[in-house]
Design a protein around this nucleic acid. Structure first.
Lengths: 587, 587
DNA sequence: AGGGACACGTGAGTC
DNA sequence: TGACTCACGTGTCCC
């Protein structure tokens, strides 16, 4: 089970369920579920890293430079396509840019919500903690954690910063759907019926986004968001599409190229670390316009996963390290392994008591309700002997989330660089029975993570229990299979009846010999005729066709209609053109 | 959880895992899996029962009456479409007919396999036992069990008889795929690459079927099988299709009609018992041509589920009955409940010690290997106190399957009709702790059944453990979702570009004013032009078109091509017709 | 030997 | 209150 730890994605890397609950609360359950599940299956992703100045500037333009009517987007993200090892295309964070809405922009309601929520210190605290947790989980370096460099995280920034950790396969989420369909997606009133469209809907809603636009390009998807209502404009989409297409030269090189150390390349959440190690990272840090406390204007970010620690592909003599130590040291701002190439044996890391309570996702939901009532002291420190844990009722003067958040804060505030603790776990007591218990715990945890992930991909869960979930999943799979087959059948029918191959749907042909001539007569439904628009337009214009000719060149058929004019032929022309354009736009 | 017992389909109604293993071994794992899972989701099926003499005779013809070249099918099944309560269409057993292959028919290889396997008494024994189990599970009456009336069950008969218990939703199995696609499916060399096509492949293979043909009709699907290689013939398919379509008057009546006692109607595996109770059943039993021991010629069967006992929809004062008693009495040839309308409280039935060992499907597979080595005495009788069971190694002189089969046989051989035991279970000892244990057992069992079912709908299971299964399921769902979205997008693109709505792909229009005339000129690719065939044909014929006119009626466009003939205009006509037909057949 | 996977009984929480 | 779900530690089997 060489890659088993990687195989559980980020699911196994949690200190406890409160932490999970907090992340879920801040990101929204769906987004959280998605992160968990996608981290499971978007592994081994080769990311084309080529950071492109041009790209950044074009994104900035969309956000910074208002157009003629004073409008500019609140954030812009480029989701860059790349190919995973398994051959799937995955859209990952490419580049981005965001700014907080100006007062004038936001609707009254949105502003009230924002201000109310943002006043809450707990919320701010949680956001930072969550962003940091994500940053850590997905392998970021401590000094790259933008969240910590902000005094506060606004809703827009939360959406933006959290988005960095998402990636989408074909059809997944807004970007994935957009890219799969190949067409623009313009989401206004994003939180009515279309609320399900993207997993980050909840974040978008919180950020007050009224309009989201996804535009597919040849190398990815541009996502734009605004707190304003922006009416759909094919023109604008087209401009964006063309301005972002065919401009990346670095991408193809990287996604085509084979890595020398292919298999053993350390990855974090699938991101190839070796690719980020070099110029990209530095370049990125140089150009990153970190927003200062005062001038909160705008935030531009390229790659989030700018290297942290390496894991997976454990060597046989890997160092052992408890996950508690691990997180502890990371929290203190030190990457666990020094040189980028070195690898840590993390299998045992997770097999030691990591304090993962291992509650189910049901419990996770409960936890959110319970969080102000009880604290489960089953944290890593309290868990070494791991016999039985009692939930302890506290005064609820402050929530546990806030508590741990404060603790967090202080440990960050003190700029610490004392040597991290390393080495074996203290081998508490007998090892064999405890090991078994622990292994079993881990097995259950893994299973629960899978259940959790499953829950996130199956819609319409009838009941919250595992059996029902499985049942729903099975039913859903059957439904999908059926739909797929139906569609395939439909498509096959459609293709076989309506393509050039095979007889045309309508046309009938008959041949007569009349005198010394042979007359061939073709009749076809007007609908499918190439000249149908013209025919309809001529009818609409109520003109008489004097003559209609048809000639065939090599591979083109020309129809010529000559219309006699009784008066002003230029007027007639205009009339016809108008009728034609009406035809083409209305149909 | 009123319907929970029904909710577990037939999954909960097993004596022990050896029984399951045996059924799986006889039917093939896939078929078994499918039965388990489909019984979960094909519930509440309203079956149109109208048994049709005409149908039976037409099926018989296909099997009994050799055509000019001496060929006839080895079996014919009509899968009848009906609508489940939830609105899904389901293909269930409608009618059928089969005969064993004549010696001359079967290939040498197939005959060797058959004779070798059929010599084995154990196999025969297992087959009967399995068929009887299925018959019981799906609610058949004892006296309707055809298997018991045969001296031996041949491979063909096994396929045929087992098929009775299958039903297919859109896209499921051979019939479901055929019906969903709306086109004939002709499977020759059915067990090479196309082996996966139907869940009953294994049975078909065992029966030596070289060719399977599915033909969709308007009310279902005709399935035909032959041990011979039958080359594909569109003609034959067409004959069958038309001969089986539009001939059922009873069906629509039944599937439309509402039942008076709708909700409370007892069903077995979804089959409405009240519908089978009356004429259908009698009629069926009268006309059933049971094959005698000597004259093994042919076997015709209409509805398998001809009423047995009623369960589900438990009334609050229902009688309690242990499942052991239950199976015991059924085995002795007595239906559990007398009057059809009466209902049995089966919730408790399954909560009492039923001896369901509750191993997972993994263990089930192991069991198959282990079966000659060990016997698990965890059967119902041995389980009352249920503390711990040890597998006991035996001499393996005979397998447990064979053993239980023999036991079975004797209990059947004695023509028994002594009054069945009824009433409460002897309330063994304390109830509360045991109840809890039992409930938990059942919960696990249910979960495992779900896992088992899940396994049967997810292809490409990487590893056999639960976590991997879940992972694969999630990946599979994502894949399906992606594919579906891709196809939808494709279809949308296709529709929007190739249908009347939206601009035509090729045509370009321009308008000029010339003198006092306005000329409209349309150019379009010849490929998509309705007259392309004619244009091409005229080119091929190398003739000069003297005149081509186009007129548009209401919704039809006429093209008229006048070709001048230099000599024999009839010859020219023939030439053109020939060119036209070549065009249409080649393209 | 030793880790992985599983079923089991049990205590506990929830509605 | 009972019906039900869950997590846990344990014993066992198999690689």
């Amino acid at each position: 089970m060489k890659m088993e730890v990687v195989g559980t994605g980020i699911g196994g890397l949690w200190d406890n369920d409160e932490e999970k609950a907090m992340v879920a609360a801040v990101l929204g359950t769906r987004a959280f579920d998605y992160l968990i599940s996608s981290s499971l299956y978007n592994e081994h992703l080769l990311v084309g890293v080529g950071s492109n100045e041009n790209l950044q500037s074009r994104l900035s333009d969309l956000v910074d430079c208002p157009n003629a009517s004073g409008f500019s987007w609140n954030y812009a993200i480029f989701w860059q396509i790349s190919r995973s090892k398994s051959g799937d295309l995955v859209l990952g964070w490419g580049d981005g840019c965001c700014r907080d809405p100006r007062d004038a922009e936001e609707s009254e309601a949105a502003r009230i919500i924002n201000s109310k929520l943002e006043e809450d210190g707990t919320q701010q605290c949680m956001r930072k903690k969550v962003l940091q947790k994500l940053h850590t989980l997905f392998g970021g370096l401590e000094e790259d954690n933008y969240a910590l460099q902000l005094d506060r995280v606004t809703n827009t920034e939360l959406l933006f910063l959290a988005s960095m950790y998402f990636s989408f396969r074909r059809g997944e989420g807004g970007p994935g759907k957009c890219f799969a369909s190949g067409s623009n997606v313009w989401l206004t009133n994003a939180f009515g019926s279309a609320y399900d469209f993207c997993v980050r809907s909840s974040l978008m809603k919180s950020a007050g986004m009224q309009t989201i636009l996804w535009v597919p390009t040849d190398t990815g998807v541009v996502e734009l968001g605004s707190v304003r209502f922006v009416p759909e404009s094919a023109e604008l989409s087209q401009t964006i599409r063309s301005s972002f297409s065919l401009n990346f030269s670095a991408l193809s090189r990287i996604s085509e190229g084979k890595l020398a150390n292919g298999e053993a390349t350390p990855r974090i959440f699938g991101q190839d670390l070796s690719l980020m190690r070099g110029s990209s990272h530095l370049q990125f840090r140089e150009k990153l316009p970190i927003r200062k406390m005062e001038e909160r204007q705008q935030l531009k970010v390229v790659h989030p996963n700018s290297v942290g620690f390496a894991y997976a592909t454990p060597p046989s003599n890997g160092k052992h390290l408890s996950s508690w130590d691990f997180f502890q040291s990371v929290k203190q701002g030190n990457p666990v392994v020094g040189p980028y190439g070195s690898q840590t044996h993390v299998e045992n890391l997770l097999q030691t008591a990591n304090g993962g309570r291992g509650d189910s996702w049901v419990d996770l939901h409960k936890m959110q309700k319970r969080t102000h009532m009880q604290i489960d002291f089953s944290g890593p420190a309290a868990r070494p002997s791991a016999i039985s844990r009692l939930p302890v009722t506290v005064d609820a003067e402050q929530s546990d989330a806030e508590a741990s958040c404060k603790e967090e804060r202080t440990s960050i505030a003190g700029d610490d660089s004392r040597p991290r603790k390393r080495g074996r776990k203290p081998a508490n007591g007998r090892e064999e029975p405890l090991n078994h218990v622990e292994a079993e715990r881990q097995r259950r945890e893994k299973l629960n993570q899978r259940f959790y992930a499953l829950r996130s991909v199956v819609p319409n869960i009838s009941k919250m229990d595992k059996a029902s979930l499985l049942g729903d999943a099975i039913a859903y799979i059957n439904e999908l299979q059926g739909r797929l087959r139906t569609m395939e059948a439909e498509r096959d029918n459609y293709v076989s009846t309506s393509t050039n191959s095979g007889p045309k749907p309508g046309p009938e042909v008959d041949v007569h010999a009349v005198g010394n001539e042979v007359v061939v007569r073709v009749s076809s439904p007007v609908d499918s005729h190439p000249a149908s628009r013209v025919i309809q337009a001529l009818r609409d214009a109520g003109v008489a066709v004097a003559e209609s000719k048809m000639t065939a060149a090599n591979d083109t058929v020309f129809h010529t209609f000559v219309v006699k004019s009784q008066g002003d032929e230029l007027l007639l022309k205009e009339k016809l053109i108008e009728a034609l354009s009406r035809e083409s736009s209305s149909s």
